[in-house]
């Protein structure tokens, strides 16, 4: 037997409630008290320094509070583009780093994620092992790889000698022709695990029923991957690509720790060159000009891709 509250009683109950004031304020206004503290912090610690760096790029300043900032217009940019012997090397290296990062570690991460998404013995152990380098501080990774590449005592050259390939031994960090790529290998080792985890998370979102349906329809593995898995991974790809581009342009500590930008500035990148100009050479105007160029490149690469990807999402 069911019991129901008589309608009259319900009406009485409603009448008994205290009258609610009508919400006139918009959700945004109501959220403001919560947003303001974070907004102020964000503005002071992120937006203001960014704007100030752009402003400083039009001044000549040694960084000493006792010395004035002198307006020089575009001179820092002209100097960077025409008279700075390192700028274009750093520019080229930064672009090479972005392209390689998009090509190699991302591909490896995807392959590892696909492999470790299958049921196999020790799967979680392998996932942990591959992810482990991502938790190390970059400067630690740099110290490890510096030893690995040590020309006399390092594991690489020792290993090559042990298997009779002594002629392949090399100054991995001392030869300007290959030093950048030697550092990049360490970057691959460090970054593959993190992207692998992102792809693994993305793979969990691939609808099993769609895969099953494709299989029943006779699609083979590659077709299922291309037509079912890849489209489902699109949001993950957007995240991974954007993070990879940003992290590649920001690369700094690994280079500092392994080569310091050398030999002969051959592994210099824009972020490190901006820092060197500002904090080592004490030419803050030139350092800020390089930082501004880096900011423009970052926006030029990330914003169009993000817009394209989000448009695809909407469709």
């Amino acid at each position: 037997m069911t019991t129901t509250t008589p309608p009259v009683a319900r009406r009485d109950a409603r009448r008994a409630d205290p009258p609610r004031p009508r919400a006139k304020r918009s959700p945004f206004v109501r959220a403001l008290p919560y947003l303001v503290p974070a907004g102020l912090l964000y503005g002071y610690f992120l937006v203001y320094p960014m704007i100030d760096a752009v402003r400083l790029s039009f001044y000549d300043w040694s960084g000493f509070r006792t010395e004035p900032q002198v307006w020089v217009g575009l001179r820092n940019y002209v100097r960077a583009f025409t008279a700075d012997p390192v700028f274009w090397t750093a520019f080229k290296n930064s672009l090479i780093w972005v392209v390689l990062s998009l090509a190699i570690p991302m591909m490896l991460s995807l392959l590892l994620a696909l492999g470790l998404n299958r049921k196999l013995l020790g799967r979680n152990l392998f996932r942990s092992v591959f992810y482990l380098p991502a938790v190390f501080a970059s400067i630690t990774v740099a110290a490890m790889w510096r030893w690995i590449y040590n020309p006399t005592l390092g594991a690489v050259n020792q290993g090559l000698k042990a298997i009779g390939l002594e002629s392949w031994t090399h100054q991995w960090l001392g030869d300007p022709k290959i030093a950048l790529y030697s550092v990049f290998v360490a970057a691959i080792w460090q970054s593959v695990g993190f992207n692998m985890v992102l792809f693994l998370a993305g793979l969990q979102q691939v609808p099993v029923e769609l895969v099953e349906a494709a299989r029943i329809d006779g699609a083979h593995g590659l077709q299922i991957f291309r037509n079912v898995t890849l489209p489902a991974l699109r949001p993950t790809f957007v995240v991974v690509v954007i993070l990879t581009i940003i992290n590649s342009l920001k690369v700094f500590d690994l280079v500092v720790g392994m080569t310091g930008g050398g030999p002969a500035q051959s592994t210099q990148v824009l972020a490190l060159w901006s820092w060197t100009q500002s904090f080592q050479n004490h030419t803050f105007g030139q350092g800020s000009a390089v930082a501004t160029v880096l900011l423009i490149i970052s926006l030029a690469l990330v914003v169009p891709y993000l817009a394209w990807a989000l448009r695809g999402e909407d469709h």
């Binding site: 012997p85 390192v86 001392g174 030869d175 300007p176 050398g262 030999p263 002969a264 500035q265 051959s266 060197t276 100009q277 080592q280 050479n281 004490h282 030419t283």
Partner: peptide, 19 residues
């Protein structure tokens, strides 16, 4: 000066590497 030192080192190393 600091920026001259940075360049002095670059040239020194470039000579050593043959660049």
């Amino acid at each position: 000066s600091l920026d001259q030192t940075t360049e002095y080192w670059r040239i020194q190393n470039s000579v050593l590497t043959g660049d």
